[in-house]
Computed example of a mutant assay.
Amino acid sequence: MEEKKINVLYVDDEPNNVTSFRAAFRRVFNIYTAESAEEGMKILDSEPIDVILSDQRMPKMTGIEFFQSILTTHPDPIRILITGYTDINAVIDAINVGQVYKYLSKPWNEEDVKNFIFKAFEVLDLRRQNKELTEKLIEANEKLEFLARQNLLS
């Protein structure tokens, strides 16, 4: 059985960064790119994205604001913030507001990014398995409660 490629969305307003990201990771992941948060939202609405990487400093909407804006409509993808600036407030906001899994600085190391994406996907996969098992447990409990009521009535 062939292993599913991870769907990765990379959002950055700098076209050279977008091109570099696609070139570096297209053989390993299914890469989707956007040069604005608005473009990223359109991709999220049309593609099953597993991991999102976004630049922090973009015009109109920061990476954190982008992540915060998609939490209700697309809560599942794991979010990674990338920035060329060291700003502790951005890191804190990313974690608290945008529910960011990782914070990476530019320039990024290809091997680190690849490993972070794989680890992020593991987290996503575990969350999905947990949700599925919880649903099965709820269903089993409902059946047991029904059987227990049937035995009490007879």
Rank of each mutant, 00 (worst) to 15 (best):
K119M: 10
D76M: 15
L137A: 09
I95Q: 02
K114E: 15
N30M: 04
I82Y: 02
L152K: 14
F121H: 14
D13L: 03
E35D: 12
E111L: 12
E142R: 12
I31Q: 00
I95M: 15
E132D: 15
Q129V: 12
E39Q: 12
T33P: 00
I78L: 07
E38P: 00
D125G: 03
T62V: 04
E38T: 08
V18M: 00
R149S: 12
D55C: 01
K114G: 09
L44A: 01
E111Q: 13
S154L: 05
I70R: 06
I43R: 00
M58E: 04
E65Q: 14
N96M: 09
F116G: 06
V97P: 02
I138E: 10
Q56T: 05
L137R: 07
A148I: 06
D93C: 13
S36P: 13
P75H: 05
M61S: 09
F146S: 07
G84Q: 02
Y103S: 02
F121K: 03
Y10I: 00
D87A: 10
K42W: 02
F116E: 14
V18G: 00
M58P: 05
D93P: 06
Q68R: 13
T134A: 09
W108Y: 11
Y103N: 09
V51L: 03
I88D: 09
V123Q: 11
F29Q: 07
Y32G: 00
V11G: 08
D112W: 08
N30D: 13
R149K: 14
K114C: 11
A34V: 02
N130V: 11
L152M: 15
E111F: 11
Y103L: 04
E132P: 03
L53D: 04
Q129M: 15
E39T: 08
N17V: 00
L104R: 14
S20V: 00
E47R: 10
D50L: 05
L44W: 01
I95H: 03
F67R: 14
N141D: 00
P107W: 07
P107T: 05
Y10A: 02
F121D: 14
Y10P: 01
Y103Q: 03
N109F: 10
E122S: 10
L44F: 00
L137T: 11
D12E: 13
F25C: 12
F121W: 10
N30P: 06
Q150G: 03
I82F: 05
A90M: 11
A94Q: 04
A24H: 01
P77L: 08
M41S: 01
S105M: 13
D87F: 03
E122L: 05
L126T: 13
S154D: 08
L81E: 01
V123W: 06
A148G: 03
L144M: 14
G63K: 08
L104I: 13
V51D: 10
